[in-house]
């Protein structure tokens, strides 16, 4: 596996410059530690998240196509997006541009008027931060670099919706051994296990946190998140490992809201998987942005001697 993805284009996206900055910081820090090169896309734009498609899906396709055209112009054949939303949208655009004439037509019109190259499908591969670490250094690469093993840390791996659904936009998944599964994803489990973590058998790996309506329908989101939190606790997890800034912030936000509105207190911690990997490889909590999380996980980090 090693050798692949040593230098890739990096698309952080808006959330990683705002509420999810801890994910940005920890992804970069882990990459540096692993000797992997990230080159940020120049003048990237928002992918449209879960919102622009509701105004019109083809604009959303264009937004991602513009980012992919930038990667191509910079000479990259791979772009890595740690945010599930960005990753999903780049994949979706790739699929639509390959299969839908109307999407191609709108993309070429908007790209022409905006004055940049029209992206054509098949030129740039989109990968997630999980693919990036899994296929560049893999579990062996992680094991070699572990300084503070996550031994004794019980982790519920939470992948969310956008990393696996719908299946058809992820042609490389469900290809048997070695490939990611869309029904039971395992890349995060494997990477964290390599760092010593004890993964619990979490049945809600791909359940929804209600992130798209985190603010507009908070009561629904709070119910969904509370279910994720209490189930993680019932599985014996100390921490939920996340790989999406919307899920992560949603869990933090609605953990507090569940306590305030429903009187249901949960104490399971929430950390990005890159924060856990980074601390396992000897990076300080500050270097992986633990202080930038909305929730406070320091008690657990100290207890497990990761600080």
């Amino acid at each position: 596996m090693s050798g692949k993805y040593q230098k890739v284009a990096y698309y952080p996206g808006c959330a990683l410059e705002g509420s999810g900055h801890a994910y940005n910081r920890s992804t970069k820090a882990v990459g540096k530690k692993l000797g992997l090169d990230l080159v940020e896309l120049k003048n990237w734009n928002c992918c449209g998240a879960m919102e622009v498609k509701n105004i019109d899906p083809k604009i959303q396709t264009y937004l991602s196509a513009r980012n992919l055209s930038i990667a191509e112009d910079m000479g990259f054949d791979t772009v890595m997006a740690p945010c599930n939303g960005c990753y999903h949208n780049l994949k979706k655009a790739e699929y639509d541009l390959e299969n839908d004439e109307a999407s191609r037509e709108v993309n070429s019109r908007l790209s022409g008027k905006a004055g940049h190259n029209t992206y054509e499908s098949g030129k740039v591969e989109t990968i997630h931060a999980l693919d990036w670490i899994k296929h560049s250094v893999g579990e062996e690469g992680i094991k070699d670099r572990v300084k503070n093993s996550l031994k004794g840390l019980k982790v519920a791996n939470y992948y969310g919706c956008m990393y696996t659904r719908p299946r058809h936009i992820f042609p490389e998944k469900d290809k048997g051994p070695g490939s990611e599964s869309t029904s039971k994803p395992h890349f995060m489990d494997e990477l964290l296990a390599a760092a010593g973590a004890e993964n619990v058998d979490y049945p809600l790996k791909t359940a929804c946190c209600g992130g798209a309506h985190a603010l507009s329908d908070s009561d629904t989101s709070t119910k969904l998140v509370l279910n994720l939190l209490t189930t993680a606790e019932a599985c014996g997890a100390d921490v939920i490992a996340t790989e999406c800034p919307t899920c992560h912030t949603g869990l933090e936000m609605h953990q507090i809201r569940a306590e305030k509105v429903l009187g249901r207190k949960t104490s399971v911690k929430i950390l990005y998987f890159t924060q856990l990997l980074g601390m396992a490889m000897g990076l300080s909590p500050k270097a992986v942005g633990v202080h930038e999380n909305f929730s406070d996980s320091m008690s657990l980090i100290k207890e497990k001697k990761l600080a």
Binding site: C14, E17, G18, N45, C46, G48, A49, E51, V52, N54, I55, L63, A212, H213, L215, S216, D217
Partner: peptide
């Protein structure tokens, strides 16, 4: 509320290319 959110979000994207 979801449409109000979608519109506020999309207006920012269309206006500046990014959201805060």
């Amino acid at each position: 509320p979801s449409m109000i959110f979608d519109e506020a979000f999309s207006e920012q994207v269309f206006d500046t290319g990014k959201i805060e």
